[in-house]
Design a binder for these strands. Structure first.
Lengths: 196, 196, 196, 196
DNA sequence: GATGAATGAGCTTTCATTCAT
DNA sequence: CATGAATGAAAGCTCATTCAT
């Protein structure tokens, strides 16, 4: 099998980066976990940063594919949003390491962090597109689709990471219905919700 | 004036921790920015970790006070939620450094990170309390107030940090109405919002 | 009372120097134990080294006085040696801190260590004098009184420090008879002791 | 050759530890003397303490082997004691650095010091064993073989270290006969040595 | 392709000493 | 006389990266 070592390094790196954070993660620990010599990592990746970016790149792509490919193209925006919520929770359930990496490592002015945000923006723009479609169809109403998209993404993600560190055994996907309902119909009971 | 040096260190530390992250921040840079000798920091704080925890403690307390003290006690839960959204955005507008620190440094198993989350939980519980009050009054409906609270907190925070790294000049508070409306009435236009 | 603080510092310093060794002892700990401010130590002693030398000077003088003043001037050299053994053990029993300081801190090329050894040499020379007197009187026989003196001093001291770190409750003075006998008559039973 | 660097570090460490003492010795100086980078020391030894303990362990083992392996098994206890005196002096002549390290660094409550004393006790017990054999054979008489053993060890060691700091060119082994005679037959001329 | 010994810049922390009060 | 906040040089230790094998 090609890339056996690469894969081992990749998996070990996700482990270690999510457990320690980028700065505290050491190439020694990654090498030990991957059961390769430290030099071997440098044969496959030019630097710690490059390894990280590769990993984040793959992860974000996988997030995009996992979530967006499940969208039923003919469904309503409302239905698509429900799928987003469910699938993103499912993704974070399966790849909780990556959920942690996103929230810890995306914020800063280092190259890897800007790069990371570029990828996240790409994903959130897809959510924003759905919101905008919903508006165009008259399903949704909001004055600021970008704000809507980021708060949807942030709401799901922070709910998920809180759950991850709670170390509960409940499956993240179980939060999907409540979360989707809040996003779509809000907290207010229908007969009220007056404007100030 | 007492504590002049302590304050300088405190402010410098917020700066540096938010710009570099806990691990990459150096005591040298904090000392230089505070215009004190490195030893002076250690005269006031026993370690880098202790300095960080002190700072996070003060920051989280200030967040709690800034937001929760503004809550009109006699108002409806709906109105209280609007205040939360506005005031938390205002807080992040004024203390964007602290917004960054929260989202970067709260997630992990180090002592300082667990401590940090304990404080955040305290704040988010207050939001959860309002949601539960709203339910009790018949204003709100949700099957999972904890999920509601964390997704509200996360939605506001991630919207804010995205905005901070966008380096726009728009005041964060301007997002308050749209964000509040989404939380309260949801995205869906009132005449629909069917259940699956 | 004059020198109340000086005395407190002196006693605290003996404590700390013997517990930690010169290098690891800190002026902070000495100040804390003496219940004075750190600056106060520097009012009474110019430096850590000076404090140490003063303390060692006093201690060695006290050792000399404690032991040598007990020597019955009219007694035989044999009897005087017995007194030396007993009184030095008694001194180490009362000032075990100082016993530790002697054996830890006298060996090296720092100024304070040379100074220390100068004082020790003075004390050991007194023992050597007794040995030489004994030879002159025909009581003792040895080809090397200096070696005799140092090995007597070393034998007593190392026996004592071993006992101190054993943390036994036995009084050091109880070893005096056996130790004196060994020094004076040797291990061999009288009817033998052949020369090689 | 394997362990070339390790050996260089080992030798440099003995040098520096004996010249400066454990606390004052710096890893920088050891590295410089060993002509390796500082990090290299940490590649081979986990800490300054571990390097020290390793060195002391080897040294004490070597002391034991150097001295005890020379003991003629069929000889009398008296003869064995003479060998001990001569060989221990020879060892200290060859490894004066280690003689200094023993007397400076064995006394204290740090882990490395307790460990050190454990090893010394092992060596001194061997001397004690010889004394006890001598008693069993009727060659020796003493009420306290442990005291005898420690004072023999201490007498030799302190005589040696005094000589080392005197920087004389005389070979330590030249003191062996006088020292042995004192230990075996004592100072007193045979016709006396009365008990008080 | 793979290894792991070696490196050295850079980090946190300590602590004797000073000095304004 | 006495204080204790402030200092900065110096030390132990870490770790990404390199390179000879």
């Amino acid at each position: 099998m090609r890339q056996a070592k690469s894969h081992a390094i990749f998996n070990a790196a996700i482990d270690v980066f999510s457990e320690r954070g980028f700065e505290k993660a050491t190439m020694d620990e990654i090498a030990a976990k991957a059961k390769v010599a430290k030099g071997t990592i440098y044969y496959h990746f030019n630097s710690k940063e490059e390894l990280f970016v590769f990993l984040v790149d793959e992860g974000t792509k996988l997030l995009g594919e996992s979530v967006l490919s499940k969208l039923p193209q003919t469904a309503t925006a409302t239905e698509q949003l429900r799928v987003i919520v469910r699938e993103q929770l499912e993704f974070f359930q399966n790849y909780s390491d990556f959920c942690i990496i996103i929230l810890r490592e995306a914020w800063g002015e280092d190259t890897r962090q800007r790069e990371f945000r570029r990828m996240l923006v790409h994903y959130v723009r897809a959510i924003q597109g759905i919101v905008e479609n919903g508006i165009a169809c008259g399903e949704f109403a909001t004055s600021d689709p970008e704000t809507a998209a980021w708060s949807i993404f942030g709401g799901i993600s922070i709910r998920a990471i809180h759950h991850i560190f709670t170390r509960s055994t409940i499956n993240l996907v179980e939060f999907a219905p409540a979360l989707a309902e809040q996003i779509i119909t809000g907290l207010a009971t229908s007969h009220q919700a007056g404007e100030p």
